[in-house]
Design a protein around this nucleic acid. Structure first.
Lengths: 177, 177
DNA sequence: CCGATACATGTCAATAGTGACATGTCGTGT
DNA sequence: ACACGACATGTCACTATTGACATGTATCGG
């Protein structure tokens, strides 16, 4: 399952509690890559601890347990990342909507496209800020996500925005003709 | 559920059998937007027929049933597409792998990045062909998918490829330093 | 005519994931 | 003192999804 690998990845950057992991999913990971709520994260952490992939290294206030990756977990993550996925699972409602746009009448499609263009434009603006904040950190290691991920998200947004504008122009040209 | 809307979208382009829908998922939709196998498609079609969103318009050889969208189904699809999703569900294993790249040692990360760059480069080449084949068709209507979707996939691949190259360069520069 | 292959649909058990509900703690402001 | 919000973890019923298994039919090449 991918969720366990996502958790291993986050923990290998630095140890965290389930609660903090949940927030990480809400913030970055869940937006672009893989969403999960605390109701799947906590049970999964327990399963992984039992399997020896992670371990509790510290118990803090309010019953908080800090998890860290074990050597076995690190090896599992590395193997997974280095193993080529024949056909990775994709499930993106946003992209689905774009595919289905062709089913709408041009006037309706234009409404949706304009909304997409605006939303992605906002996303680009937001991520530019994030990128600047992390500009000097090294790409791998403790702050890696702020780098590779932000840049990835940024380029993703730009691509969608440009596509939406292209589609708008094409549709308007067709309607005019 | 998104699967039903995906089916409505495909059927609204032109009527098809469950088998043909399954192939459509294997070919385009499932690659970029929403994957589903025949074991979820057939039961879903039956549910949707019962709900009056689709209907069987023709029975062919080998028990094949051609489904078409009803007016109610068309309205449902339109409403869904025009209703803004606050926070669409995302689950993309490929993107997850990219996020987790930071957890690898630079040498390992470079191996993966090179593989991504190659694979997406191939994807770009393939989709350019698709785009040229459909260059004259109108953007909405019967052949819409070949247009908006191909262009979207193309730009998506290009963005990932360029990102991978950017990441490779950054990593190599860091390692050299 | 026979065998392979693509066509075509289905069930069912197991797994994964969501949303509603439940419980308790610590710190901060009033 | 106390209320409130963020912290922190959990269960459980329900729904969605997958993979294994099952079944039968046209078509095409040899």
């Amino acid at each position: 399952m991918s969720l366990s690998h996502a958790l291993l990845g986050l923990l290998s950057v630095h140890p965290r509690s389930g609660y903090e992991l949940t927030k990480a999913f809400e913030r970055d990971l869940g937006r672009y890559a893989w969403q999960a709520g605390h109701t799947s994260i906590y049970p999964e952490l327990n399963r992984m601890a039992e399997a020896g992939l992670v371990e509790v290294t510290h118990e803090g206030a309010r019953g908080a347990r800090t998890y860290d990756v074990t050597p076995a977990g690190r090896e599992e993550l590395r193997t997974w990342l280095l193993t080529p996925p024949k056909q990775a699972k994709v499930r993106n409602e946003q992209v689905l909507r774009m595919f289905l746009l062709s089913a709408l009448e041009p006037a309706d499609a234009l409404v949706v496209l304009h909304r997409i263009a605006e939303a992605t434009d906002q996303g680009v603006t937001d991520l530019r800020k994030v990128r600047e904040e992390h500009a000097e950190a090294p790409v791998t290691g403790a702050d890696g996500f702020g780098q590779l991920a932000a840049e990835f998200g940024l380029r993703q947004y730009e691509a969608v925005r440009d596509w939406a504008r292209w589609a708008i122009e094409r549709l308007e040209r067709e309607q005019g003709a």
